[in-house]
């Protein structure tokens, strides 16, 4: 197994290990191409370091990623010091509902940061970026995969800037930031130990009660609700007021010509942008 394929074991994260929900397991690697890409391969039966079928709750942390990705194939610079983690989740809810898990994870991450940094006020940028003091400090990316038995999997990937932030790129709605910019910041181990149990709890809420409580918790931390936004789509730009999110998580945009639902877009906030 080369480093690019699955990495070699790295130093453990004892707090996170101790905080794992029953049945979950934590794998730490020194370097992988991407934690999402690696977990997708493992879920699809290629190169998994464990015997038997994959199971929900495989948590893969890498010290660094050589080919970390964001939306639209953008690079996610991944030097050592930040948290790069992906979690394998049961995808049985089906593709039509799995996008809701991005909101589940966003809420869990915001709560974890709020618990560790009481003076900070983390906010969520639709659909699931984490903002701290007007800077983007974390991003999420979810991908579905198909197991060898045909079973669907969902790979949830999170990148959280703890010690390092990239320079601002032209397409970034907010300047990148680090947790450390907003006060004494947790390390990877403490953050993961706070995040994973909250993720498990919010997943259970989602599975038993549906998206409504997730949506409510997300809206409490929503950035820019009720204000003007510019949505950049692959096919153009839309301007309007960020009115709400739908019962399925779609952004509800009130434009001069009526109400629209957005399912995939980069959201910019004209008030703040240069």
């Amino acid at each position: 197994m080369t480093a690019l394929q699955g990495g070699t074991p790295a130093s453990p994260l004892p707090q996170a290990e101790a905080a794992l929900p029953p049945g979950w397991r934590l794998l730490c690697r020194d370097e992988v191409d991407g934690t999402n890409a690696t977990l997708v391969r493992w879920a699809e039966g290629r190169g998994a370091p464990f015997d038997g079928a994959p199971a929900e709750g495989v948590v893969l942390v890498a010290d660094q990623q050589t080919a970390g990705r964001g939306r639209q194939g953008r690079d996610w610079h991944s030097p050592p010091g930040n948290l790069y983690v992906s979690v394998l989740l049961d995808g049985a809810a089906g593709p039509a509902r799995l996008a809701e898990v991005g909101f589940v994870a966003g809420v869990a991450l915001a709560e974890a940061v709020a618990a560790l940094m009481p003076a900070a006020a983390p906010a969520l940028k639709w659909p699931n970026d984490l903002l701290l003091d007007g800077r983007k400090v974390a991003g999420l990316l979810l991908e579905t995969a198909l197991g060898t038995d045909g079973g669907p999997w969902l790979v949830l990937g999170l990148g959280v800037n703890l010690a390092w932030a990239p320079p601002r790129g032209p397409e970034m709605a907010f300047p990148p930031g680090r947790l450390a910019d907003a006060g004494p910041a947790p390390g990877r181990d403490a953050l993961l130990a706070a995040l994973v149990p909250r993720l498990a709890v919010w997943l259970a809420v989602w599975r038993h009660q549906g998206f409504a409580p997730i949506r409510a918790a997300w809206l409490e931390r929503a950035h820019g609700l009720g204000g003007p936004i510019e949505a950049r789509l692959g096919t153009g730009k839309r301007h309007g007021v960020f009115a709400d999110i739908d019962p399925d998580g779609a952004l509800v945009l009130d434009t001069e010509t009526g109400r629209e639902r957005l399912l995939a877009a980069d959201i910019h906030f004209p008030d703040r942008d240069p």
């Binding site: 939306r71 593709p95 699931n128 779609a250 399912l263 995939a264």
Partner: peptide, 12 residues
């Protein structure tokens, strides 16, 4: 690929 809210789903 179909994306909904940063969830990417391959259509096979």
């Amino acid at each position: 690929l179909i994306e909904a809210m940063k969830t990417f789903n391959p259509v096979r």
